[in-house]
Simulated scan of single mutants.
Amino acid sequence: MTTNPTPAWGSPGEARPPGSGTGTGTGTEKKRHRIFLWFFLAVQALFLVLVIVGAGSNDDSSCKGMAGDALKTCQDAGDVGTTIGVGLIIGLWAAVDLILGITYGVYRLARRRA
């Protein structure tokens, strides 16, 4: 006579805990789509690319023909302009993330009460 060991979630007649397998097998489980997560990650990737491209866009072609202090001043001004541009991109990034976060919170609250 052999006895089957009792599973960690209880006897075979008991319901399984959430996320522990196939569920009840009724086919009524609703699959959760993570559309917002993928959209949010796409926005983050876009802004990351914008920051990298913006930081690398310092072009000294407008300083051609200059020498000495004038060249140094022109290059420093270009660096300041690049810093301001990257700062504006990061500020926009933060604002968009804040708007997305508030929108997602309102969406979750509306779905919970329905």
Rank of each mutant, 00 (worst) to 15 (best):
T73G: 09
G13W: 08
T26R: 11
W38E: 15
R16K: 11
I35D: 07
T26P: 01
T73L: 08
V43W: 00
D59Q: 07
D69S: 09
Q44V: 04
W38Q: 10
V49Q: 04
P18T: 05
S61K: 09
L46S: 07
L41I: 02
G27K: 14
K31E: 12
P18K: 09
S62E: 02
S62M: 08
K72L: 10
G13Q: 09
S20M: 06
L41C: 03
G13A: 14
W38L: 12
K72A: 15
D59I: 03
F40A: 07
P18G: 10
V49F: 11
T28G: 03
S11D: 13
K31L: 07
T73C: 09
F39M: 13
I35K: 03
I52H: 05
M66S: 02
S62V: 01
E14T: 15
D69F: 02
G23P: 05
K31H: 09
T28R: 13
D59N: 11
T22F: 13
W38Y: 13
D76H: 10
F40T: 01
G23T: 04
G19L: 10
W38N: 04
D76F: 15
L46I: 03
T73A: 15
L71W: 06
P17D: 10
L71Y: 06
T26L: 10
H33K: 11
A70P: 05
G13Y: 15
G10Y: 05
E14F: 09
L71S: 05
A42L: 11
V51M: 01
S20H: 06
T24W: 03
S61Y: 00
G78N: 15
L71E: 12
N58M: 07
A70R: 04
T28A: 08
E14N: 10
L50Q: 09
F47K: 05
G25V: 11
S11G: 12
D69K: 08
T26G: 14
A15H: 12
T26I: 01
G65A: 05
W38A: 08
E29V: 00
W9A: 13
K72E: 14
N58T: 06
K30E: 05
S20R: 11
W9D: 10
L48C: 04
K30N: 05
F40I: 08
R16G: 08
P17Y: 13
V49E: 00
A45M: 02
A67F: 08
G10I: 01
L37F: 08
V43P: 00
G56T: 06
G21E: 01
I35Q: 09
G23S: 12
Q44E: 11
T24E: 15
P12Q: 08
T28L: 15
G27H: 00
K30C: 03
Q44D: 15
A70K: 12
Q75T: 04
F39P: 04
F47Q: 03
N58K: 09
G19V: 07
S61F: 02
P17A: 12
W9S: 13
T26N: 15
G27V: 14
R32G: 14
A15E: 07
L37P: 01
D69Q: 10
R32N: 14
L46T: 13
A55Q: 13
L48K: 03
A15N: 06
M66D: 01
H33N: 06
R32K: 13
S20G: 04
R32M: 12
G21N: 10
G65I: 11
K64P: 06
G21D: 04
F40C: 04
G25S: 04
G27W: 07
L41D: 00
L46P: 00
